[in-house]
């Protein structure tokens, strides 16, 4: 836990990014405390997913720095960002379709395990032990998110809601400090959203910080400790959900739409 200031697990400072002439993000700063659920909202095209892709190492920012768990990550490749402690899910689910649910979660532990070719071939004691731990932990995580670890179903045959849950379990398998969820409730009905809310609360209670992009305003307002609002690549507001609801800029950004 080197270099963590004031319990801040995510520190974003003046991050900017443009594509060609289009400014997607300008000077975004955002801090997230350990154990918080931080919501990131904004109209379509506001730059939420771009910010996500920068944080997860898919794009590198034009300028600005950010730290995950105290480690500077702006120039790291995606797999090293995961190692630093940030795991993600995808807006349009990206599971490993032809692997079973359990195998998907087992892949998630790749970054925290180390057996290589020799161990795989000779299965010495350490390799067997590590493999057993991977499987046990993955089973536990599947149960944790409410999936049956014993079904041999390929993940692309799971129901939509189960696929979303599996993605969260897979992200948790990387032992993250922060998980970043990109519209986890998209396409869910009221019951499923309710279950998702319970799951996210449980994840927070177990000490994992959550960064949440979500369109479902009700979910965001009910769940988040704080909310940041993006519009045209600029952070127009940040604060407690109740304050955000009354913020004039936010209301204007949503074209006068009511936020309650």
């Amino acid at each position: 836990m080197q270099g963590i200031r004031n319990n801040l697990v995510v520190e974003i400072n003046d991050v900017s990014k443009s594509f060609g002439g289009l400014v997607a993000l300008s000077d975004i700063s955002l801090d997230i405390k350990q154990g918080e659920i931080c919501g990131l909202i904004g109209p379509n095209g506001a730059g939420k997913t771009t910010l996500f892709n920068i944080l997860t190492g898919i794009y590198s920012p034009d300028s600005g720095v950010f730290k995950i768990n105290g480690q500077e990550c702006q120039n790291l490749k995606p797999h090293l960002v995961v190692k630093a402690g940030l795991a993600r899910t995808f807006q349009n689910i990206r599971l490993f379709g032809n692997m079973t649910g359990l195998e998907n979660v087992m892949v998630g532990q790749h970054v925290r395990t180390k057996v290589g070719v020799v161990g795989a071939i000779f299965r010495h004691r350490y390799a067997r032990q590590e493999e057993r731990q991977i499987e046990e932990k993955s089973r536990a995580l599947m149960v944790y998110v409410g999936l049956d670890p014993d079904t041999n179903q390929l993940s692309n045959t799971l129901s939509y809601g189960d696929q979303r849950r599996l993605e969260i379990a897979r992200a948790l398998a990387t032992d993250p400090v922060v998980i970043a969820l990109d519209e986890p409730a998209a396409g869910m009905n009221a019951t499923e959203t309710g279950e998702l809310r319970d799951l996210l609360m449980r994840i927070r209670k177990d000490g994992v910080t959550i960064l949440l992009i979500e369109h479902d305003v009700k979910l965001v307002m009910g769940l988040c400790d704080k909310v940041a609002v993006l519009d045209y690549g600029v952070k127009i507001a940040e604060g407690k959900p109740n304050a955000i609801k009354q913020n004039k800029d936010v209301i204007r950004a949503y074209l006068g739409g009511s936020l309650s």
């Binding site: 997860t56 599971l95 490993f96 892949v107």
Partner: peptide, 16 residues
């Protein structure tokens, strides 16, 4: 297999 299935997701799961 993860890389075969989806390289971007594999990276996002911490695979080098």
């Amino acid at each position: 297999v993860a890389i075969r299935e989806d390289e971007i997701a594999a990276q996002a799961m911490g695979i080098n």
